[in-house]
Design a protein around this nucleic acid. Structure first.
Lengths: 221, 221
DNA sequence: TCAAAAGTGTTAACTGTACACCCATGC
DNA sequence: GCATGGGTGTACAGTTAACACTTTTGA
């Protein structure tokens, strides 16, 4: 018999920076230290349920891309007793940032991915595993869109990819590639309040993607 | 507090056919039914340890590609009590087939992937998830080699890919692509006893792959 | 007018794909 | 000789990568 928990690795994107959501523990021996938001697995729920419940309790967010990442089970990963944790990763839009209602007894904060504080237990390892998966997945599936606002410009999209993959890409070629996939719907709407030519806004077309996928289409880069 | 188990999804390849290794349960309410070889997680071991231990106990095999697949936690996936299982997947070579020492009270057998018997619990779901992962992984990482004998011909390799991906590929183009990656070492050795021109044998060069990977090389198809 | 980013066009190099073909071997 | 698979060559189409260029806008 063992103790099982879930931990959520929540990615967000603000100002072309990839960020993750952390909570500062308010009690126990990890008091005052930052870690991933997590909770115990309850009797009547699956790990997936528990992850979604935890996300909702801690942030108020309900409708997101949430996927199982890995189960961490080293015998001594947790002090004193043995705890097995299943990590999930979630991608959320900037619009959701403001919906977050802080916990009563926990401080919560977004951290840029390259400015993380020291984390409790093996949470650093979890973050690294998640980052690796994100980098891989973002190239082979159109999940990057889940980190952007519903309406976005091609440059925002490009910046996001550059932030996640830590590379630079050629603007004209990137635009062409994206447009050719037919997954972006150009909106009758432009950026406002920018000190340069306003860019067209686009949205991701989930339906078209699902349709293409059944025909064997695979998203790449 | 919950019960945790591991289940191993063991892939093999015999005569151009992808197969998985199953055991027939000898006791309990699942007696007489086929399922994945698994066991309880013990106190002093990680899930990875448990999976390797189970593999060794059931087949005698120790040195294989073994990776965590997914953790299955539906509340009613197991009859009577709640059991959470973490599935692993393993790829083994034909040479290892003969090392398998049957259990005293369990019948064991390899099944071609498209001729599986009815499986206990949610093991069918586990197999499907594993197959999906195998199909994906085999295209993006050179793990297919782990299913072949140490020395293999290019046609064997091609047949393997065709079996896993359920497609046909052009022979000349496949050969060229593989050779260009520099991951195959041609051996001073040929097939024997075949009723046609003997093919050259190759082995996979793990070292070169690791070296190339650090330089940003990514295996594709 | 300038800076900043939007957006278009044009090349050359490289890859993927299809298919024609010759080679070696056992029966 | 013929069936079977080993193995090479080639040529076109399509894609990628690099970069020069014009356009629009607010300050």
């Amino acid at each position: 018999m063992h103790n099982n928990t879930v931990d959520n690795l929540i990615f967000g994107c603000e100002e072309d920076t990839l960020e993750i959501f952390l909570v500062k523990h308010g009690q126990g021996q990890s008091r005052g230290k930052w870690g991933l938001p997590g909770d115990w697995l309850l009797e009547g729920e699956s790990l997936e349920n528990a992850a979604a419940r935890t996300l909702k309790e801690r942030t108020g967010i309900t409708d997101v891309y949430l996927e199982q990442l890995h189960t961490f089970s080293d015998v001594d990963r947790y002090p004193d007793e043995r705890v097995i944790t299943t990590a999930f990763f979630a991608l959320i839009r900037p619009e959701s940032y403001k919906t977050i209602v802080g916990e009563t007894e926990m401080e919560v904060k977004w951290f840029p991915i390259n400015k993380l504080p020291k984390l409790i237990f093996d949470h650093k390892e979890i973050v690294e595993k998640g980052l690796e998966k994100l980098k891989h997945k973002v190239r082979h599936e159109p999940i990057g869109f889940s980190l952007l606002p519903k309406k976005f410009t091609l440059l925002q999209l490009q910046n996001l990819y550059e932030a996640i993959l830590e590379t630079r890409v050629d603007k004209p070629n990137f635009r062409r590639k994206m447009k050719k996939m037919q997954l972006l719907v150009p909106l009758e709407e432009k950026q406002v309040g920018v000190a340069h030519r306003a860019a067209n806004l686009y949205r991701f077309d989930e339906k078209v993607y699902r349709k293409l996928k059944t025909k064997g289409f695979v998203f790449e880069l």
